[in-house]
Amino acid sequence: MPSKNTTRPQDDVLADFQALVSDTEKLLQHTANLAGDQADELRLQIQDSLKRARDTLRTTEQNLRERSQAAVQATEDYVQEHPWQSVGLAAGIGFLLGLLAARR
């Protein structure tokens, strides 16, 4: 059973990037009143950059989700195939973390 926190750091990065794209779109809408060839050219460049950023974001998000799902599945398969080794490994890690926590 996959953990809900499996891709938490990636989700934070993707959410921040999506917020950046959204803020840039709002800025583009607010500058629609500006006139002139340079303003039009700047808006076109921003729109192109936003489209590329959205495409990159979708691709990156899909790749991250696929990789994290593969890691979760590999872990689950290992635990199912080697339950006692997994219990021993977990106990050892717990013991080491307990030692580190006791040192403080």
Rank of each mutant, 00 (worst) to 15 (best):
M1R: 10
S3M: 07
S3I: 05
K4Y: 05
K4Q: 09
N5R: 08
T6G: 05
T7A: 08
T7V: 08
P9H: 11
P9E: 06
P9G: 05
D12K: 13
D12E: 14
V13T: 05
V13K: 02
V13I: 13
L14N: 01
D16P: 02
D16K: 11
F17M: 11
A19M: 10
L20P: 04
D23F: 07
D23E: 12
D23G: 15
T24M: 03
E25K: 03
L27H: 13
L28M: 06
L28S: 03
Q29N: 08
Q29I: 06
H30A: 15
T31C: 00
T31P: 00
T31N: 02
A32T: 06
A32S: 15
N33W: 10
N33D: 13
N33I: 15
N33T: 15
L34V: 12
A35L: 10
A35M: 04
G36Q: 02
G36R: 06
D37S: 15
A39M: 11
A39Y: 12
D40G: 12
L42R: 05
L44E: 11
L44V: 05
L44C: 03
L44I: 08
Q45E: 14
Q45K: 15
Q45L: 13
Q45G: 02
Q45H: 12
Q45V: 08
I46W: 10
Q47E: 13
Q47N: 11
D48T: 10
D48V: 04
S49P: 01
L50W: 00
L50E: 01
K51R: 15
A53K: 07
R54P: 01
D55C: 02
T56M: 11
L57K: 04
L57E: 02
R58T: 09
T59D: 07
T59Y: 04
T60W: 09
Q62F: 11
Q62W: 08
N63D: 09
R65G: 00
R67F: 10
R67T: 06
S68G: 02
S68D: 12
A70R: 14
A71C: 07
A71K: 11
A71G: 06
V72N: 07
V72H: 05
V72S: 12
A74Y: 00
T75K: 05
T75L: 10
T75Q: 13
E76H: 05
E76Q: 14
D77Y: 00
Y78H: 11
Y78T: 08
V79W: 01
V79P: 01
Q80L: 14
H82W: 02
H82A: 03
H82S: 11
W84P: 06
Q85Y: 02
Q85M: 07
Q85A: 10
Q85L: 10
Q85W: 07
S86A: 13
S86L: 00
V87R: 06
G88N: 04
G88L: 07
G88D: 07
L89W: 10
A90W: 02
A90P: 04
A91Y: 02
G92L: 09
G92A: 13
G92H: 01
F95S: 12
F95G: 12
L96Q: 01
L97Q: 05
G98F: 15
G98Q: 03
G98T: 07
G98M: 05
L99T: 06
L99S: 10
L99G: 14
L100R: 11
A101M: 12
A101D: 09
A102M: 09
A102F: 12
R103Q: 08
R104V: 14
